Computed example of a mutant assay.
Amino acid sequence: MDIENAQGTDLGNVEVLRVVEWQGAFAPARDIVPQSGAALWKDNEEWLAPDHWEPESDRLVAALQTWVLRSGGRTVLVDTAVGNGRERPGSPQFHHWQGDFLGALARAGVRPQDVDLVVNTHIHADHVGWNTTGGEEPGGEWVPTFPNAQYLVPARDDAYFGPANGYGGGIHEDDRLTYQDSIAPIHRSGQVVLWDGTHRIDENLTLESAPGHTPGSSVLRVDAGGRRVVFAGDLLHSPVQILAPHCNSCFCLDPEQAAASRHRILARAADEHELVIPAHFGGTGAVEVRREGDAFAPGSWVPLGV
């Protein structure tokens, strides 16, 4: 289903808006998190369903969404979902996708020219698609959707998925197509800022590398005089990975490194009371994490915009 409304809340000095492009049952749960056994889902059905798991079909429930932050007088987008009219033959759900994402942004009070900064947590098709528009029209050219914005792109991902490395080593055709229609045009416009390690955006926002899912996967930390938050990108595709952080998604390129990054981010969230907001969680989209001995568990689910 298409979700047309935006939800918002204040986190200290930063306003957060959630703009959902799509939400629903996505794919078989253990296709997405292969190391998770059936018992892990069934034993937690009471709280996984219906926001994160559809037991009848055994499908993971996910969301495609962008987070709009207003910080220090600037408008910041965290990831840009799928984008319309893309050639994605390896991803049937995204192939020639058509949606009203820009309309949803407009209804949230955000025009493309108002965006100051775009954060791509990593270069995957469902995180960079609305970086550009125009090429979906016959004879059209892909150009930056947000003409006044800088685009923050992890340098390691840009190197890995870029042409010098054969677009991710030529393993997936969709990687080449994604780079060519969603990353190369913002390079040509001179709007890309590459970064590595950590990158301070302003007094409230800091990017931090969390590699493994991709070489340059990153998280965005918010410390704004109120609640501390970590936008965790694709470190987590399902809450079962909080219970079993050794379980990677099927999309993680370096499983060992991804698991280590996931454990580190969860440990800090539990110890320092950070709210965790992954890229694709359904439901409220935001969760507290608590320790249970040497393990972790979801704490309270935090509704945004209520």
Rank of each mutant, 00 (worst) to 15 (best):
V33K: 05
V33I: 15
P34N: 05
Q35W: 03
S36F: 09
A38R: 13
L48Q: 12
P50M: 08
D51V: 07
E54F: 03
P55E: 14
A62F: 03
A63P: 09
L64T: 12
V68E: 02
V68M: 01
R70F: 07
G72F: 02
G73R: 10
G73Y: 08
V76L: 05
V76Y: 03
V76P: 02
D79C: 10
A81H: 04
G83E: 01
N84W: 07
G85F: 04
G90I: 00
G90Y: 02
G90Q: 14
S91V: 13
P92D: 12
Q93M: 13
H96R: 14
Q98M: 11
Q98V: 14
F101E: 04
L102H: 07
L102V: 10
G103V: 12
G103E: 14
L105Q: 05
A106P: 00
A106L: 09
A106I: 01
G109Q: 08
R111H: 11
P112Q: 09
D114N: 06
D114E: 10
D116F: 06
V118M: 03
V119T: 01
N120V: 09
H122M: 11
H122V: 03
I123M: 02
A125Q: 13
A125V: 13
H127E: 14
H127Y: 06
V128T: 13
V128H: 03
V128M: 04
W130L: 11
W130A: 00
T132E: 03
E137P: 05
G139H: 06
G139V: 13
W142A: 09
V143A: 08
T145W: 02
